[in-house]
Design a binder for these strands. Sequence first.
DNA 1: ATGGTTGCCAAGCAA
Length: 268
Amino acid sequence: MPLTIATWNINSVRLRLPLVQRLLAEIRPDILCLQETKCPDALFPVEAFVEAGYGHVAVHGQKGYHGVATLSRRPLEIVERRMFCDIDDCRHLSTRFVAGGHAILLHNFYVPAGGDEPDPKVNRKFRHKLDFVAEMRGIPAAHGDASASILVGDLNIAPYEHDVWSHKQLLKVVSHTPVETEGFEAMRTAGGWVDLIRQIIPMEEKVYTWWSYRAADWRLSDRGRRLDHVWSSPNIAPRLSGIEILRDARGWDRPSDHVPVIARFDLD
DNA sequence: ATGGTTGCCAAGCAA
């Protein structure tokens, strides 16, 4: 049995609980990382996850906005709920579990979207996003041979040309501006992280994990972006056996604008 | 060039 990890920006865990239950029933990941739960910890639907077989629940949520949660079928230790940019938003949660003889540190991230105007001088939300990504440089992938790290989440940046439907038309659109994509790459390489989606899918192939709610027909226009990511430390990257991007979930009833990304490893 | 949708929670704000 492989180790399966899923990540999904759910855009309200309470409103879309039936969709989460459907994902768990169909995919049966060992661990599910959610972002934008929009749910204070005291109101998180823990019981529904326990009933689905996910008895190990780690939450870091707040009222109305943001929020991350990591749900697991195997024992999970909460490591940290980290604050970035000295702002008390719920955007990070790290946990640890054991698989294949490795103690694996799992980071679950929700990076700020950054607002509409891609100018840090006039848009403080964009400034915050750039600062947040810069601060993520301090999270290293490697911790020695006996351990490994995985980093997943909605990172709200589509770094490469074929991570967006039109590279040229998105160069001035927040999520794909050069200052973001360069900062993103600098952060990933500084930490020593491997982009597991692009390890499997060739760079010249279009890959999206998000489609705007504003499109009249998201499937027809297919103007997507790859905003959700799965990274690992180099020592377990060769153990990745597959990536599944559950595009169908964008067509489910009352969907999230993001779809689940599932990574499978040859580790037990 | 503009406006297009959604969720939270009850008016805008954030995405």
